[in-house]
Each structure stands twice: as structure tokens, then as C-alpha cells.
């Protein structure tokens, strides 16, 4: 009698859900996500919404950086493109902000494609510098759109059938639906031929070209898809925020997103990104809110305001040196240990 889990078809071997624990995880995750508004109120529900917004953006960056190996320091600027698309369409043309979110994705995807152009010739640090330049240029453009004020999205454009999607439970479920669709799509891209082509370009672009992959197109696609995700995240962020301003999409946010991908697990588009956002966004925000009053009380205001970036920088450096595969690799090792326990191998 065979011991263990055996798959009899290639379809079963390539499926998202392959082991009983996957089904159990899906069931528990679904119940938790669907019932979250029952036990998360106010601030914590907002945290859940922000988690999903940043998760979508991080998944996009994980496709560009983790799968295709293309360093982008302009991901926050792409989010900004999405946010400004929604805000301007709602304000100037009266377009419903919710319906404008796909357009935000498309606008940022177009911008992502433009950002991919330097990657046809540049790699590594040089590409990072090109994206850094793009980040600053876009930040400047955003500051020109509304120099000294936020763009407020009219409340009525955040409604569909009388339901206000600008906050609370309706926004939570809207973000949840978009997140599930986009996460599934990202997982599908990663497990298929497109994902393998991106990984091939990341691992060895010369060999990728020789085995028949159009490297230029694959790089452009990775940036474009990443841009689409960033745009949708930005669109949702615009819906969530009272107003859209360029301060929300600065280089620091780009680095934060980079940290989420590098710490979570580059190349593991869904679970890696999820861990990264959980640690750096949700985890840190909650830690900060409890630590800051304490530090301020001790007269350490300077540390309170800069601690985040000190920790972020340290974590990125530590993970790049000690665990380049991110937290997901640590979890995988723990899982293997538990699977084999009490034996060591």
C-alpha cells in the first residue's frame, strides 16, 4: 500500500490545491476573511483593508522583481498613477470611482510598460537607478497636479446602488473580492509558461534568449503586469483615502514595498508577498502605534519618528545576506522539520 500523497495526473500535480492541508487552509482562510468584519471593527478593519491594498501592490512588485528579477524603485509611483487616475476621473469627469479602478490598473500598466523600456538595455544597479529616476519624475508630476492640496474624490462617486464603498464593511468586501481575483491570477501566471519564462529571464537571460524566449517582451510584460497590480492597489487606496496626494507615493513607500517582497519571499508571488506585507505593514503599524507613545514619553521622539526606516533597512540587509529567499523559506524549513519530526531527515 503506498504511503504518502500520490498524484495520478499532471493536472493534479500542477493544481493550486494539492494536499489536504491546502484544502484545510483554504477553508479556514475563507471563513476568516469572510467573517472578518464581525470581529474587526474600526481601526482594525481599516488595517485589514490597507493590508489588502498593499498586498496587491506587493504581488505586482513580486512579479516584476521576484519572478523576472527586474529591480523597480518606482512601484509607489505606479500606485500613484492608479490613485490619480481614479481621483481625476471621479473629480473631473464624474466617473464612478469604483468603476474607474480597472482603468487605474490599465493606466499604471501603460506606465509600467514605459518603465520597462530601460530594462531592455540595463540590468541590476543601472536598472534600479533608471527606476529611481522615474520615481522622482513621477513624484514631481504628481506634485504639479495638485501642488498644495489633496485631490478629494466626491463622495457620490464612491457609491454604487446607494452603498458607500469609501470605508468600512463595503470597502472591505470590495477589496477582498479584488484581492482574491488578482492573487489567483498572479498564482496562475507564476505556475504557467509565462512565469517560467520570467524566472528564466531572471536566472539567465542569455540562455533564455537561446531557448526561444523573447527576453525583451518578457521584461516588458513583467513590468506591465506589475504596473497593473500597482495601479489597482493605488485605485483602491484612492477609494480608501479621504484625498489623494503625492506624499502617499514617495520613494520611501517604494522602498517599503521592496522590503515587503525581499523579506516575504521574492519569486513566491502570493505567500511571499503576504508574509512581507503582514510583517512590514500590518505588524509594523501595530507595533509602532504601541511603541511610539512609549518612546515619546521617554523623550526619544527622534527615534520614534525614524525607527521604522532603521528597522526596515536593517531587515532588508539581513534578509538579503542571510535569507535571500525570504521568510517563506524559513517557514518552509519549519514545515519540513515538523513533517519529519521526530526524525532529523
Amino acid at each position: 500500500m503506498p504511503a504518502g500523497v500520490f498524484k495520478e495526473t499532471y493536472r493534479a500535480d500542477m493544481a493550486h490545491l494539492r494536499y489536504p492541508i491546502h484544502y484545510a487552509g483554504l477553508l479556514i482562510g475563507s471563513v476568516l476573511a469572510l467573517t472578518a468584519p464581525l470581529y474587526l471593527k474600526g481601526y482594525y478593519l481599516d488595517q485589514a483593508i490597507l493590508f489588502m491594498i498593499f498586498l496587491i501592490a506587493a504581488v505586482g512588485l513580486n512579479i516584476t522583481l521576484g519572478l523576472a528579477g527586474l529591480v523597480s524603485l518606482a512601484h509607489a509611483a505606479l500606485m500613484g498613477a492608479g490613485a490619480y487616475t481614479v481621483a481625476l476621473l471621479a473629480l473631473k469627469a464624474g466617473v464612478n470611482a469604483i468603476l474607474a479602478i480597472p482603468l487605474a490598473g490599465l493606466a499604471a500598466a501603460g506606465l509600467g510598460f514605459i518603465l520597462s523600456l530601460p530594462s531592455f538595455k540595463l540590468k541590476g544597479y543601472y536598472l534600479a537607478m533608471a527606476s529611481l529616476a522615474a520615481q522622482f519624475i513621477l513624484e514631481y508630476i504628481y506634485s504639479l497636479i495638485a501642488p498644495e492640496q489633496y485631490i478629494s474624490i466626491p463622495f457620490e462617486t464612491k457609491e454604487i446602488a446607494g452603498i458607500f464603498f469609501g470605508e468600512g464593511i463595503p470597502l472591505y468586501y470590495l477589496a477582498l473580492a479584488i484581492t482574491i481575483v488578482l492573487l489567483l491570477a498572479a498564482a496562475n501566471i507564476a505556475r504557467g509558461s509565462l512565469g517560467r519564462a520570467m524566472k528564466a529571464v531572471r536566472d539567465n537571460d542569455v540562455a533564455a534568449e537561446i531557448v526561444g524566449i523573447n527576453v525583451t517582451m518578457t521584461k516588458a510584460l513583467a513590468f506591465t503586469i506589475g504596473g497593473f497590480y500597482a495601479g489597482v492597489a493605488g485605485g483602491l487606496y484612492a477609494l480608501y483615502s479621504a484625498g489623494v496626494g503625492w506624499e502617499g507615493f514617495t520613494l520611501l513607500v517604494s522602498i517599503e514595498l521592496l522590503g515587503m517582497v525581499l523579506i516575504g519571499g521574492p519569486g513566491r508571488v502570493v505567500w511571499g508577498s503576504m508574509l512581507g506585507v503582514l510583517v512590514l505593514k500590518t505588524g509594523w503599524t501595530n507595533l509602532e502605534s504601541s511603541l511610539n507613545p512609549l518612546l515619546t514619553g521617554m523623550g526619544l521622539d527622534i527615534i520614534a519618528s525614524t525607527a521604522k526606516y532603521i528597522v526596515l533597512g536593517t531587515l532588508i540587509a539581513v534578509f538579503i545576506i542571510l535569507e535571500p529567499e525570504g521568510l517563506i523559506a524559513v517557514l518552509r524549513r519549519i514545515k519540513e522539520y515538523l513533517r519529519l519530526w521526530p526524525y532529523s531527515y
Binding site: 498572479a186 517560467r196 536566472d203 540562455a207 533564455a208 531557448v211 526561444g212 503586469i225
Partner: peptide, 29 residues
């Protein structure tokens, strides 16, 4: 010149990429 971060099956399947069917959207779906 293999793709060192991928496993053997993925490396071999990558060689079939030029004959893939479907666009980005069909892969996403």
C-alpha cells in the same frame, strides 16, 4: 546555461515556451 533557481522539470518545460498557446490574460485566468 541552465536556470539554476528552477527544478529539472521547470527547466525542460521552459524550453517549450516558444510554442505556448494563449496570451497573458488566458494564463491569468
Amino acid at each position: 546555461e541552465l536556470f539554476m533557481g528552477m527544478n529539472v522539470i521547470e527547466n525542460i518545460m521552459t524550453g517549450l515556451h516558444p510554442w505556448r498557446k494563449g496570451n497573458t490574460l488566458s494564463y491569468a485566468l
